[in-house]
């Protein structure tokens, strides 16, 4: 059946409204986008690492989660879901469970790229039949916008502040999607909120229904941490994709595939400019930093084109 956004939006939501995330936050959009791909009638257990999403959707005695949900700690969503999935296999084998269950763990970039990296790597390597979704907003937002290894170069965060002798974060981003792809699991993809959400939907569907471990990395902007006008979220995502800051691609059964090549690749400055966290770059003294940034983006994009067979070496 062809993808139809309107029809998808008419399905009952698995994450109820009334949660406490900021207006315009990318994280719940990611959650809804992913969970909409779970077939109606299929049961779901959601796991979540500590972070904005968790503390804002399950505050005792209220939960926004209509499916079963488990939060354990900050660094162990991967291992926790491994345990849930193992329990399912055991109980199913003993005939104690009849229905089909799906398992999806959500973690922020901090809980995924950094402190939960080992737990995620272990879960993926062991091949649990689950999806791990990183909602990447490029910093530890819940504790007040500290840098993570997903924070883009030069971003001003509360632990990489720009100052008289600092131009923000001095390191580039860790490429987690590629690292997980190199675990050689059945499905890995990178996506964001783009156009009619078809890319996110189809990748979620594959990740959920392909047997074995799957990983989705979703760029999920945080208007507070990035400092752009809340209503511009779709524009921010589009710029991330069109500047090749956040390429849309997937690795299915070892085959790398680029899902979108911008007709006109925009300069990285277009993505950086609207965001307050990069404000310090747009002074006459710092022009060379934007050039340096552009080089890094170009190099990574070229490498990806090769990996995806769009270009040969």
């Amino acid at each position: 059946m062809a993808y139809n956004l309107k029809q998808e939006l008419s399905k009952p939501e698995r994450l109820a409204g009334g949660h406490r995330m900021c207006a315009g936050c990318g994280a719940p959009i990611a959650v809804r986008g992913v969970t909409r791909a779970v077939k109606e009638g299929d049961k779901l257990v959601v796991g979540c690492a500590t972070g904005c999403l968790e503390v804002s959707t399950f505050m005792y005695p209220y939960t926004s989660w209509k499916d079963s949900f488990i939060h354990n700690a900050f660094e162990n969503a991967g291992a926790t879901m491994s345990g849930v999935e193992a329990a399912y296999n055991a109980l199913k084998r003993k005939g104690k469970i009849k229905g089909e269950y799906k398992f999806i763990a959500f973690g922020g970039d901090g809980g995924t790229y950094d402190i939960g990296f080992q737990s995620l790597s272990g879960a993926m390597e062991r091949g649990h039949d689950m999806v791990y979704v990183c909602y990447d907003n490029g910093a530890y937002m819940n504790t007040g916008i500290q840098r993570s290894s997903a924070t883009p170069k030069f971003a001003d965060t509360t632990t990489t502040p720009s100052g008289k002798v600092s131009t923000g974060k001095s390191q580039g981003r860790k490429d987690l999607t590629q690292i997980i792809a190199n675990h050689h699991i059945p499905y890995v993809a990178q996506t964001t909120f783009f156009r009619n959400f078809k890319d996110l939907h189809e990748k979620s569907e594959k990740a959920i229904y392909k047997k074995g471990a799957a990983f989705l990395n979703i760029l999920a902007p945080c208007p507070r941490g990035w400092r752009y006008p809340t209503e511009d979220i779709m524009e921010m995502c589009k710029l991330a994709v069109d500047t090749c800051f956040w390429p849309l691609y997937e690795v299915e059964d070892g085959k790398w595939k680029l899902n979108y090549i911008p007709k006109k690749k925009l300069p990285i400055a277009d993505f950086l400019k609207p965001q307050g966290r990069f404000k310090h770059l747009f002074t006459p003294d710092n022009e060379h930093l934007i050039e340096e940034y552009q080089k890094e983006i170009d190099q990574r994009w070229e490498d990806l084109l090769v990996l995806c067979g769009e270009k040969s070496l």
């Binding site: 257990v45 796991g47 488990i70 354990n72 700690a73 660094e75 162990n76 991967g78 291992a79 926790t80 879901m81 491994s82 345990g83 849930v84 999935e85 193992a86 329990a87 399912y88 296999n89 055991a90 109980l91 104690k96 080992q118 737990s119 790597s121 272990g122 879960a123 390597e125 062991r126």
Partner: peptide, 22 residues
């Protein structure tokens, strides 16, 4: 189901997930 985890931190984390799952 024997889960040969990659650390004790993950051992007990998986135990929490599993026991909570029933």
């Amino acid at each position: 189901e024997f889960v040969p985890v990659e650390s004790e931190h993950s051992a007990i984390s998986a135990c929490v997930g599993s026991q909570a799952a029933g």
